[in-house]
Each structure stands twice: as structure tokens, then as C-alpha cells.
Amino acid sequence: MKLYYCETPSPRKACAVARYLGLPIEYAFVDLTRGEQTRPDYLAINPNGKLPCLVDGERSIWEADAIMFHLALNAESELWPRSASQQVDVVRWLSWNSQHLLRHGGSLYFEYLVKPLFGLGEPDPSKVSEAQDSFRRFAGVLDQHLKGRKWLLGDDLSIADFSVAVMLPYAPRCAIPLDEFTEVRRWHDQLNAFDAWRNPFPARPAQAGANA
């Protein structure tokens, strides 16, 4: 398997799951600042020109959540639960995250990290305030759900935890109001106990140890 990635949130969760599972994967860094995601050879495997992308034999899998699912199945890992009811819960949280928490956390990531990287100006205070208010709304839902639960599904870690938490490592740099939510912070601290979560990206020769 070959995992194409860059050091941004969506590839982060795919890389974290791959490291957590200890799978034999070849990593290929794609430099967004050089537009490498638009090269014909990359578009041949992912016509969306987005990251991450996993190539497994003749199959090319786009989208980080699908990649995590594929990796968990490949490893026969409990990160993809066996019971149908828990599988429904995983899909529910993946969908919820993509529409809500990731969306608003991603807006803050864009304002504070993407704009400086590409010379797009300073954070827009009105957009920051709007994104923070929306993040708070849905983080409150997550905070209530986590009361009395170790992980999103209860006692069992799953790919849903890796997906829903993906914006939280960027909280200090992106003005994400994580510290306002005790249960969410406690849950994220548990993920931080895993080296695969703290350091998901493989070291690159030209930039050893660099994470974004």
C-alpha cells in the first residue's frame, strides 16, 4: 500500500491510523505549495487533486475516512467494530464531523494557518468569530455525548475517534476554543497518549520531524 499525504488535517487522521495499526505502508509526500497535487501523475490516481489518497494494488481510495476504514479492515482491527449497531454509530459520527465540527474547525485552520502559508492576508475577525460560535455549538453536543464514555462508542476506540478529533491538535494555533469543553479536552488527552496521534506523519529527509 502507498499513502499519498501532506501535513494537513485530513491526511493527519489517515496517517495516524496507519501508524497506530503498524501497517507496512509506503508514504509519498505531496507538496501543496508546489502544486504537486495537480500534476498529471497524481490526478491519474485521484482526479479530485486532494489529499490523502491510498493506492492498494490496482485500487485507488480517496477520502481520509474511507482510507481509515480500509486500513482497519486490512488489519482486522477493532477500530472498525464488528457489531452492526456500532458500525452505524461510526458512520453517524463520521458524517456529523464532516458537516459540523470539522467544517467549522477547518474554517479557523484556514484563517490562521492556510492564509499565512499562501500569502492570503490576515485572519478575518468576522469569519473567525462566526466559526468559533459554530464550533462551540457542536463541541457542546460532543461534550455532552462524552460524559460517562471513554471513547465515542463507549469503551471501544474506533476510527470515529481519530476522525472527529482531527482538528483538535491545531487548537492553540487556530483559536479553536477547546479548553471550554472539559469532556472533549479529556477525550483528546487520551488520544494524545498515543504516539501515532501526536506524531502521525513520517519523517521526511528534507524536513525531519516537521508537522503542520
Rank of each mutant, 00 (worst) to 15 (best):
W187N: 08
I61S: 07
K150D: 11
L117P: 01
L102R: 13
D179T: 05
Y5F: 13
L102Q: 12
E58K: 15
D89F: 06
H70K: 09
A210N: 12
P200G: 15
W93E: 07
L23Q: 10
M68L: 11
D195Q: 00
V88Q: 13
Y4L: 01
L178I: 01
G121T: 12
R137W: 00
Q99W: 06
V91P: 05
N46V: 05
G148V: 09
S163P: 04
S129I: 04
D65C: 07
Y112M: 02
R137L: 07
A160Q: 07
K13S: 12
G119L: 04
L23P: 12
Q99T: 06
P205N: 02
W187P: 14
N48F: 03
R19K: 15
G121M: 03
T33W: 01
E183I: 07
A165N: 13
G121L: 05
K127I: 07
S134T: 03
L146Y: 07
H104L: 00
E130D: 11
A72M: 08
F118N: 08
E180T: 01
V17M: 04
I159H: 07
G154R: 05
N211W: 06
G106L: 02
G119I: 00
Y20F: 12
Y170K: 05
V88Y: 08
R39V: 04
E122A: 15
R185S: 04
L51H: 02
P205G: 04
E130T: 09
D65T: 15
R186M: 14
S85N: 14
S83M: 11
R186P: 11
G140L: 06
S98A: 14
K147N: 14
K50Q: 09
R92P: 00
L142C: 04
P40S: 14
V17G: 00
F110C: 10
P169T: 12
L153P: 15
C15E: 13
A139Q: 14
T33K: 14
P116F: 03
R137Q: 05
E7L: 06
G105W: 00
R34P: 00
Y42F: 14
D124R: 15
S85D: 13
F69L: 13
V88L: 10
D143Y: 13
P9E: 05
Y109G: 10
F29A: 07
I45E: 03
V164H: 11
L21R: 13
F29T: 01
R136Q: 06
E76A: 09
S98M: 06
D133I: 01
R59L: 14
L153A: 06
P81K: 06
G154N: 07
R92T: 02
D89Q: 14
L108Q: 00
R198Y: 02
S163R: 09
A131G: 05
R137P: 02
Q144V: 03
L152N: 11
D41M: 10
N199C: 09
A75W: 04
R103E: 08
A193D: 12
M1G: 14
Q132L: 11
A212C: 14
K2E: 02
L157M: 12
L191V: 02
F138A: 09
A175V: 03
